Computed example of a mutant assay.
Amino acid sequence: MDESEEARVLAITKDYGELHQAILQLLLQVKSIDSHKLTRFVGDAVADIVIDEKTIKRRQESGNDDRNVAETERNENKTDDDVEEQNEQRQNSRENRQLRIQVRKRLDDIEVLNTMGVLNRRLTPLNLCIERMIDENSTDDVESSTDEAAYIYTLINRKSTKVLQISTSFSEKEMKVISFLLDLTFGDSTGDEDTSSRREHYSIARYDTLNNIRSGFGYSMVEAEQLMTRLVLDGWFELFDTSYSLTPRSLLELKDYLKERYPSVSTCLACGQILVRGLECKVADCPVRFHSKCYQFYKVAHQNDVSCPGKDCTGSLEDVVDFS
């Protein structure tokens, strides 16, 4: 990739246009996507734009502006022009493959994040935005502060103030079930609870979930399981081990609602996002909690100070325990 191509690649990511529209269409379809897949999508989309521009320029220079030229039948005895054209097509194909590889290498997570910033500036007046959260299901390891974490990117409707208001596919009865499940997950919603004590679990056992839906809302066990399957497939809940918990998409979409409704909701010290499982300081009443990946980054960045960052806490960053 020469300097002019690299400059064009960066311009495509910085100037709102075809790339950003393609990303928005993708997120409207899939709702959320992990950063590795998104980075690959952005790289391929940018490469396609550059390749299309080069193809159009090549045709214009050759005097062939007709993009819909019908292919003619080839005789077994090909002319020299036919052979030359085929060789040129093969050469262009090799160059395009090489360009695609180079673009993927050039566009890292930082470039993708900047691209999201350009898109978010266009979405803000529409009360929409794209946010990201650490993907706790990722198996990526963090060995240095420069390692790239796996994130989940989600298109958020900021105008929604009620639970799942963005979805019109749930009945009133189903909405009541969902609100009930949130109460089970995060505890009392009255705001009168003692916020100094920590909840030890932000998930609901699968059997308890189905049984509560059956007994509290008149569902059969089959109907209860069908509803939970639908919520999982729609990306609102996930089944982790044998318990249901909210997905990163749900936590991002409902962040303001959850913080207002449930005073004891926990947030990650490093990224500030709500978490439902991760690591916590084992000292009683210390509120410090991390996503597992955020903890790895934080520990690498603070390797010269292993004391717990919690106020008045005498614990150590080495002394953390799992919670879920």
Rank of each mutant, 00 (worst) to 15 (best):
R67I: 08
F217P: 03
R106V: 00
C271A: 03
T115S: 12
N120P: 03
E200R: 10
D234W: 05
T168C: 11
M1G: 08
S138G: 05
H20C: 02
R8W: 07
C313V: 02
V163Y: 00
F297D: 01
K37L: 11
D66M: 10
H302F: 07
P248E: 06
Y298Q: 03
R158V: 11
R230E: 06
Q25P: 02
M175E: 09
Q25L: 15
A22P: 15
K176F: 03
G17Q: 11
V321C: 08
F290W: 14
K159I: 05
V69L: 13
E223S: 09
K105C: 05
R261N: 10
K282C: 08
I56G: 00
Q86Y: 04
R206M: 14
V9G: 05
L126Y: 11
V42Y: 13
H302E: 06
E53N: 11
Y202G: 00
E200N: 05
L252V: 07
R261F: 10
G43N: 06
D34K: 11
L239N: 05
V142K: 06
G216P: 08
R97K: 15
I51G: 04
G278M: 09
T13L: 14
L231P: 00
R59S: 02
I101Q: 12
Y151N: 00
I130V: 14
D194L: 14
I12A: 05
Y202I: 01
Y257M: 08
D108H: 13
E200K: 09
A224N: 09
R121A: 02
S167V: 03
A301C: 10
T190R: 09
I156S: 04
S292P: 00
R90G: 09
L99T: 03
L107W: 12
S215Q: 13
D108W: 11
S4I: 11
K37I: 06
D234S: 03
M133S: 09
I274N: 01
L126N: 13
E88V: 07
I33W: 14
V222P: 01
D241I: 12
H20L: 07
C268K: 05
I56D: 08
S167I: 01
A270C: 10
Y202K: 04
E280W: 13
Q296W: 02
S220D: 07
Y244S: 06
K78T: 04
L123A: 02
N68V: 01
Y207D: 14
C286N: 00
V306A: 08
V163G: 00
I178Q: 01
E53S: 11
D34L: 02
H201I: 01
D183P: 00
R214W: 03
Y151R: 04
E280N: 03
A22H: 14
E3L: 13
E131D: 10
K282E: 15
L233M: 10
K37G: 01
E260C: 02
I166V: 14
Q60E: 14
D322Q: 11
N87F: 12
D15R: 15
I101M: 07
S144C: 11
